[in-house]
Design a binder for these strands. Structure first.
Lengths: 220, 220
DNA sequence: CTATGTGAAGAACTTCACAGCT
DNA sequence: AGCTGTGAAGTTCTTCACATAG
C-alpha cells in the first residue's frame, strides 16, 4: 500500500464496490476475485486492484478477496461504521419521497427531520418524521446533537438560503438535489445531483449514438 | 476549433454552463466573459474556454460571449433544440414525485407516461399522467412514436427487467435512479444516479474534513 | 488594452504487464 | 498455478501562458 492521497475517482467508485459486495454476500459468495467483482460493477480488474491498493492490501494472492472483510474495510474507509443522521430541507413531493426511501436507511443513513417554509406542508408526516418550520432547524439540530448531512430539495430560489441555514445550524455536509450552483464554506463538503442535467447529457449521447456509427464507448 | 472528440468531462459540464447562462439571461446579462461565467459555475476561466473550444469559437476576443448565442450553441450541441419525451418505470413515491417535477419540463423534457407493476399504483394520476401497467410499455411507446429517455425508479430487484422492457420497446436511452448496476445494450446510452452513493461519498469527505487539517479541496 | 482560443506543460487517472505471494 | 499489488506506460483532463483578434 502506497499511503498517499486516494484519488477522487477512486472514492466515488467505492460505493459501487460496496453495493456489489453486499449483493455478493447476500448470494453467499464468500470470496471474490478482482475479475469477478469487475464484472459485477462493470469495470475491469486492474481498476479494482488499483483502487483497493490506494487504501490497503485486502486480498490474498492466488486467492482473491474475502467478501465480508472487504465490505468491512471499505465501510471503515468511507466512515460508514457509525450510522449517520440526515435532515431534509424542502418537503415537496420530491423531498418528502426521500423520507420514506428505504435505501438510505439500509445503508445507515437515517433521515431524522424535515423542514419546509410552506405552512401547508408543515405538520405533515412522512416516513416517520413530521415536517417542521425551517425556522426550527437550528434548535432541532441542537437537540439531535449531530447531523451529518443536510439534503436540499427546495425550489431553486430557496436552495442557497437553505444551505446557509444548514451550515449555520452546524450540519456537517450537504447533498444538493436542486439545479443551482450552491456556495458552501470551506470545510462543509457539498455534493450536487442534477437530474435534469443527467437528461441533458443523455440527450447528447443520444444524438451521437444515432448519427455516427462504429464502436461506441458508453458514457460514464 | 479543433474538431476532434469532445471530452466526456466537457460534456458533463455543459448542463452547468447552460444553467448558469439561462440564469444570467434572466438577470438581463447580455454578454459574459469566461471569467464571470467561471464564477457563476464555480470553476476557472481556462476550463470554460477550453471546453467551448472543443465545440466551436463562440466568443469575441476582447469582449466575451453573447449569452443568448451561447445558450443556443450549447443547446444545439447537446441536442436540446427539439423537446424530448420521457417515460417512467416505477411509480412509487420517488418515481411519481418526478412526474410533477417542473424542472424537467422547463428544460424540454416531458414525462408523457408512467408504468408500474403494482395494481394499487396503476390508475393513479400524477403530474398529468396516469400510471399504467408495465405490460403496456411497448404499445404505449409505439403510440407515442418516439421516447427519448426511460427513467427507472423501481425497487432494486425490478430495475434490470425494467431496463430490458424499455429497450425492447424501443426507448432510446435510460436514466437509472436505482442503486443497481444495470446492463444495457451497446447503442442505448445509460446513466445512473445513486443518491445513497452520494451520501456515502460525503461520509468519506466528512471523515477527512474533521480529522485532518489544512487546505481542503472540495470534492467534485 | 482586453478577453478569447490554443499549443504545451502538468496533473490525474486508467491500463498494462509482470514481479511477488500463497 | 493463480491472483494480487504495483511500477511504468498510456490516456484523459486541467491549467498555464501567450499569440491572436477585436
Amino acid at each position: 500500500m502506497k499511503s498517499k492521497k486516494v484519488p477522487q475517482a477512486t472514492i466515488s467508485r467505492f460505493p459501487l464496490y460496496l453495493r456489489a459486495l453486499v449483493n455478493l454476500l447476500a448470494r453467499e459468495v464468500r470470496i471474490v476475485s478482482s475479475q469477478q467483482l469487475a464484472e459485477e460493477v462493470g469495470t475491469n480488474s486492474a481498476q479494482i486492484r488499483k483502487d483497493f491498493s490506494h487504501v490497503g492490501e485486502f486480498g490474498t494472492r492466488g486467492v482473491g478477496y474475502i467478501v465480508e472483510d472487504l465490505i468491512e474495510q471499505i465501510s471503515k474507509f468511507l466512515g460508514l461504521l457509525r450510522s449517520k443522521k440526515v435532515i431534509l430541507v424542502g418537503a415537496g413531493k420530491f423531498g418528502s419521497s426521500l423520507l420514506s426511501y428505504q435505501g438510505f436507511r439500509e445503508r445507515g443513513f437515517e433521515v431524522v427531520a424535515a423542514f419546509d417554509i410552506d405552512q401547508r406542508k408543515i405538520g405533515k408526516k412522512a416516513g416517520g418524521v413530521t415536517v417542521q418550520n425551517v425556522d426550527e432547524i437550528e434548535e432541532t439540530v441542537k437537540n439531535i446533537g449531530r447531523v451529518d448531512v443536510g439534503i436540499i430539495a427546495t425550489p431553486a430560489g430557496a436552495a442557497q438560503e437553505a444551505a446557509e441555514r444548514l451550515v449555520k445550524a452546524g450540519v456537517k455536509s450537504i447533498l444538493n438535489l436542486v439545479p443551482v450552483n450552491l456556495e458552501a464554506p470551506e470545510g462543509v463538503p457539498l455534493r450536487s445531483v442534477d437530474l435534469s442535467g443527467e437528461l441533458q447529457i443523455l440527450s447528447y449521447y443520444l444524438l451521437r449514438t444515432e448519427t455516427k456509427r462504429g464502436p461506441k464507448k458508453r458514457p460514464k
